[in-house]
Design a protein around this nucleic acid. Structure first.
Length: 271
DNA sequence: ATGCGGACCTGTTAGC
DNA sequence: TGCTAACAGGTCCGCA
């Protein structure tokens, strides 16, 4: 479900309700996520002040004085703010209860998400330390993308979806950015020119920023923390549009599976 | 080091 | 209408 814009939308939605507030309790109804939720989470968080929430790629990092809670929404996860005491529904696996009568509630039907704990500096954590630059940061440049790709034989789509290359570019926005940049998704990463990587960097940043402004993409069931859908779907130019006309040239949008993921493109506009 | 396929799950939809 | 198969926005891990 969530890509970077959806995670960012979630962060902005929940932060005002819980940042700077004290955690009263943690309720774990089902610890079987991608990795087991550590039993120590309740003990570690109870009584702590939530100092800050940050996003790194698609991970949300909740910092308290004694460590960091690392949370990923996986494919189907969502976070909502509810009034404490609101009955939990199916797939509501974790509650973080605050003293201000607000509860941060984690729902995840497929349970591909995770909730982890680290007492070390979070950037040392093995999931975080290997990540590439943020796509909206200064470290994400055409020069970087180009140099790093020179010996790579994988497709350019696979390359930009690799979190070690750049974090947070998921399946929707990879297709969208490659269309915007006029690059065929199947092209070898090592065979893309610096000039075209320049276009790609701009396209990735543009599409992510626009999606964040519009509150993320709601395809099926993504809702923001307040239950409202995101509005980026109406801006999608190729994703989920197989068989329809390309909005640039009128040719038919094609779909093919690449690295086990659905990929959408226009064979006229993209080379 | 890189690339690939499998793994983890449930819910929804397409097709017969 | 009902059953079954395919597919879904992620990404880590192990193996070649």
């Amino acid at each position: 479900m969530p890509e970077l814009p959806e995670v960012e939308t979630t962060l902005r939605g929940i932060e005002p309700h819980i940042k700077g507030h004290q955690i009263k309790d943690v309720v774990i109804r089902n610890k079987s996520l991608r990795w087991p939720i550590p039993a120590s989470l309740k003990k570690n968080l109870s009584g702590q002040m939530l100092n800050e929430i940050k996003r790194r790629g698609k991970y949300l990092l909740f910092s308290t004085a004694n460590g960091t809670t690392i949370l990923h929404l996986g494919m189907s996860g969502s976070l909502r703010i509810v009034e404490s005491g609101t009955p939990a529904e199916k797939h509501d696996h974790v509650d973080i209860v605050f003293e201000n009568n607000k509860t941060l509630r984690f729902r995840d039907p497929r349970r591909f998400g995770c909730v982890l704990w680290t007492a070390k500096p979070v950037e040392k954590h093995k999931l975080i330390s290997v990540m590439g630059p943020e796509p909206l940061s200064d470290g994400f440049t055409a020069e970087y993308l180009y140099q790093k790709s020179r010996s790579r034989k994988c497709t350019v789509k696979s390359y930009i979806m690799d979190s070690k290359t750049v974090t947070g570019v998921g399946n929707i926005y990879a297709s969208e950015a490659l269309f915007s940049a006029g690059i065929m998704p199947t092209r070898q990463a090592g065979r893309v020119s610096k000039k075209r990587y320049q276009l790609l960097v701009q396209s990735i940043q543009q599409v992510l920023k626009l999606a964040i402004e519009q509150g993320g993409t709601t395809l099926k069931d993504f809702t923001r923390e307040d239950g409202q859908p995101g509005y980026f779907k109406q801006s999608l130019k190729v994703y989920d549009r197989a068989g329809q006309d390309c909005i640039e040239c009128g040719n038919t949008i094609k779909q093919k599976t690449l690295n086990q993921r659905s990929t959408y493109y226009c064979s006229h506009c993209q080379q």
